[in-house]
């Protein structure tokens, strides 16, 4: 199996807990009347493809596991518990239960160190998994029957600069790709990020009132569309070039590194990405986007 691993696909997989809330899965306690269908149906298309591929693992890079010292990898074989979102506790109280690919975690740790980055293995069995990781994984695979590997978002883009942060994420992506190759995994990647991130700070009485769900401003909508057009046309080099400006102008959450990590791990593919859906959540821009690499891997 050594050096035979491959990345099957990468997904931009936004994590607003509203998507889980709108779906009403048994694992989530609060009940809704629906909402945000454009994004939830987009995720349903991804679920079908992932099921068909039968990957060994889904890796997710989450901005809500923000770490100060280095890039961290979940390294506990099994993690379960109740996740109550600290920001949206009224809509997300979710029972999670996940198996972690610890062999891949070890390989990622080693390869990340080889890139000159600080890496750590999270080995505390009482650790509470962040809701960004959980929401993205639930929306991609609600059965939780595929092992996962959670990766933290080192806060270097915020602590130092966008440039330094993105450089680190490129190195992390390269390291991840090598770890997947050497462990022989057939892997799916998920960047748990919204696009534009300016949002409202007051909620409607009915949380899922779609009459109240609009983009925060047209400027950030225009930015989201510009970025999505570059993804759809496979202009990844141009996408990377405008990302710093996008992060600044639209307060884009991709600044936390997930998208850059994923694109780097995939070798900055020029394959046109498929935008499965776009919608707003409390005013932020969210898109479910797929880069299907299976034709390259075949």
């Amino acid at each position: 199996m050594a050096d035979s691993g491959q990345i099957l696909a990468g997904f931009l997989a936004p994590h607003p807990p509203h998507l889980v809330y709108g779906e009403n899965p048994v694992r989530n306690e609060p009940r809704s009347t629906g909402g945000w269908e454009m994004l939830r149906w987009a995720y349903e298309k991804c679920r079908a493809k992932i099921k068909a591929w039968k990957p060994d693992v889904i890796l997710v890079h989450s901005p809500h596991w923000m770490t100060i010292v280095g890039h961290h990898f979940l390294r506990v074989p099994h993690l379960a518990g109740l996740s109550v979102d600290p920001i949206f506790p009224h809509i997300f109280r979710y029972q999670y239960d996940m198996n972690v690919d610890v062999e891949l975690a070890d390989a990622c740790f080693e390869e990340t160190q080889k890139e000159g980055l600080v890496a750590k293995k999270m080995t505390n069995p009482h650790f509470r998994v962040d809701y960004g990781t959980i929401v993205s994984l639930h929306m991609l695979n609600p059965e939780w029957d595929i092992p996962i590997l959670g990766i933290s978002a080192n806060n270097s883009p915020y602590f130092y600069s966008t440039e330094i942060g993105q450089e680190q994420m490129v190195k992390l992506g390269r390291a991840t790709a090598r770890a997947i190759a050497k462990t022989g995994r057939r892997a799916v990647l998920a960047a748990s990020n919204t696009l534009s991130h300016l949002h409202y700070d007051r909620e409607p009485e009915l949380i899922e009132d779609m009459n109240k769900e609009v983009i925060f401003n047209n400027s950030q909508y225009q930015w989201d569309m510009r970025v999505l057009e570059l993804m759809r046309s496979g202009h990844t080099e141009q996408l990377m070039a405008i990302m710093p400006e996008f992060m600044e102008k639209a307060a884009a959450e991709v600044k936390s590194g997930g998208l850059t990590w994923m694109l780097a791990a995939m070798g900055f593919p020029t394959t046109p990405a498929q935008v499965h859906g776009y919608w707003t959540v409390i005013g932020t821009g969210n898109a479910v986007v797929e880069w299907d690499l299976t034709h390259k891997a075949a």
């Binding site: 596991w65 770490t67 009482h126 650790f127």
Partner: peptide
Amino acid sequence: GLHVDENWYEMGD
């Protein structure tokens, strides 16, 4: 409950 810090989880529960 039981809290573990997300950064310094080795510092104890």
